[in-house]
């Protein structure tokens, strides 16, 4: 061992570097460009392809594009609902569970990490909503992908209304990612007990709400308004973001 540090000149007092910001955390969260931006589009492409296969089966069974029956069945296509939440939930979880330790290792503060992660979730939700809007436009312009396929012009996404589609995709994506991030933050803060307790608490609240409303189920169903779902999504997003912030504020790195 010949190397030595003993002759190094003494240092002057360090001026601390500027702290990483939420924008820096967004860059960290989006470092995997393909996974972040291409996978949602590929997922939608797979849904479109599967919808095509299913439509082909119905065609073989005698249903024909453009008929009332075909349009009604196609516009009830729930493919997007089944495909996107899985990816978004996973992305919400990993954006905290494994990215938080690296962010702090790189010198990010907890506050910058939380703000940056929430900003990232918002940006990704906006990206998905914008992608959905563009796909809806293409779908309309091509006469449902030239063969009568319905991917975005479906009841779940607002039945062809661009504003509703953007609202559903944005709020839905953000709600799923935020909830995933909140569960991951509970894990970071309390270990395996964290998400278990959070899930139990959520289940108890939902069960209590169901019991309270059970007697008025028909009245509630009759009065149901679509904006209730949007309001519910906003509540989920707000609670999840608050939980994430509270949990990570004093979390240790695992």
């Amino acid at each position: 061992m010949t190397a030595s540090t003993h002759d190094l000149a003494p240092t002057t007092t360090h001026r601390l570097p500027s702290a990483p910001t939420a924008v820096d955390v967004v860059h960290l969260q989006t470092a995997k460009r393909f996974m972040t931006f291409a996978v949602p589009l590929l997922t939608l492409a797979v849904v479109l392809a599967l919808s095509g296969v299913i439509a082909g089966v119905f065609y073989q069974l005698g249903s024909r594009p453009g008929t009332a029956e075909w349009v009604e069945n196609s516009r009830n296509n729930p493919g997007v609902l089944w495909a996107l939440p899985g990816f978004l939930g996973y992305y919400g979880v990993q954006s905290v569970a494994t990215t938080f330790p690296l962010a702090l290792t790189l010198g990010a503060s907890r506050r910058a990490f939380t703000a940056g992660t929430l900003l990232f979730h918002g940006l990704l939700a906006a990206y998905i909503a914008l992608a959905g809007l563009v796909l809806l436009g293409v779908e309309e312009l091509t006469g449902q992908w030239f063969v009568g396929l319905y991917l975005m012009d479906v009841v779940l996404l607002g039945g062809g209304d661009p504003l509703r589609l953007v609202a559903v995709l944005f709020l839905g994506s953000l709600a799923v990612m935020s909830a995933g991030a909140a569960f991951a933050a509970a894990w970071v803060r309390f270990g395996a007990r964290g998400p278990a307790v959070l899930a139990l608490g959520t289940a108890l609240v939902l069960a209590a709400a169901a019991l309270l409303l059970a007697g008025q189920a028909s009245a509630v169903a009759g009065a149901f308004q679509l904006w209730w779902l949007a309001a519910a999504a906003v509540v989920v997003i707000a609670l999840s973001c608050a939980a994430e912030q509270l949990l990570l504020r004093r979390a240790s790195v695992r």
């Binding site: 360090h14 601390l16 570097p17 500027s18 702290a19 990483p20 470092a31 995997k32 996974m35 990993q94 494994t98 990215t99 330790p101 690296l102 702090l104 290792t105 790189l106 010198g107 990010a108 503060s109 506050r111 910058a112 790195v253 695992r254």
Partner: peptide
Amino acid sequence: APTTSAVSFVRDDQRYPDD
């Protein structure tokens, strides 16, 4: 925050994001 960013500490069991 500025102090947090003035320290580099890579744990021996450091976690990295998937992929």
